[in-house]
Amino acid sequence: MMGTTTATTGTETVPTENATATTVLAEADWRERAERHATRVDAATSEHLRRRSAGERHPVEDFLFTYYNLKPARLRQWHPGAGTLLAGEAARDRLSERFYTEPRGADGGVGLDVPAFLAARPILDFVERLLSSVASRPAHLGCFGLHEWAMVYRTSEVRHGQVPLRLGHEGTDRVVESHRIRCSHFDAFRFFTEPARPLNTLRPTREAQADLDQPGCLHANMDLYKWAYKLAPAVPSELVMDCFDLSREIRELDMRASPYDLLAWGYEPVRIETAEGKAAYMEYQRDFAERGAVLRERLLDVCRSLRAHASV
Rank of each mutant, 00 (worst) to 15 (best):
P215R: 02
V175H: 09
S156V: 11
L212S: 05
F189T: 04
M151E: 12
E157I: 00
E170S: 14
V158M: 07
A188S: 14
P215Y: 01
H185K: 04
H179V: 06
R159Q: 14
R159T: 11
R182I: 00
P198W: 02
H147F: 02
R182C: 11
L165K: 07
D213F: 04
A208K: 09
D187P: 02
P195M: 13
E194K: 07
Q214C: 02
H160D: 09
L202T: 03
E177N: 11
T172P: 02
E148D: 15
R203L: 12
A188M: 15
A150L: 07
Y153E: 07
E170M: 11
T155N: 06
S178A: 15
M151Y: 08
T201K: 09
D187G: 02
P204I: 09
L146Q: 08
R180I: 14
A188W: 01
C143K: 02
Q214D: 10
S184P: 00
V163L: 12
F144V: 00
S156M: 02
G171N: 09
D173T: 12
P164G: 10
L202Y: 13
H179S: 12
I181T: 03
G168Y: 10
H169V: 12
Y153K: 01
T201G: 03
Y153M: 06
F144N: 09
L146N: 05
E177P: 06
I181F: 05
M151D: 04
V163K: 08
R203Q: 13
A150K: 04
Q209D: 01
F192N: 07
Y153C: 05
R206C: 00
T155W: 09
Y153V: 06
V176I: 12
V163G: 08
S178P: 01
R174Q: 15
R166V: 05
H160M: 11
L146T: 04
V163Y: 11
R190S: 05
H147K: 07
F144R: 07
P164W: 05
E148C: 04
C143P: 01
H169P: 06
A208F: 01
S156Q: 13
D187V: 00
E194M: 01
T155E: 10
P215V: 05
A196F: 08
R159G: 13
F189N: 01
W149T: 02
V163C: 09
T172R: 10
P204L: 10
F191H: 15
P164C: 09
G161N: 12
S178D: 14
P198C: 06
S178E: 15
P195C: 06
T172F: 03
Q162K: 12
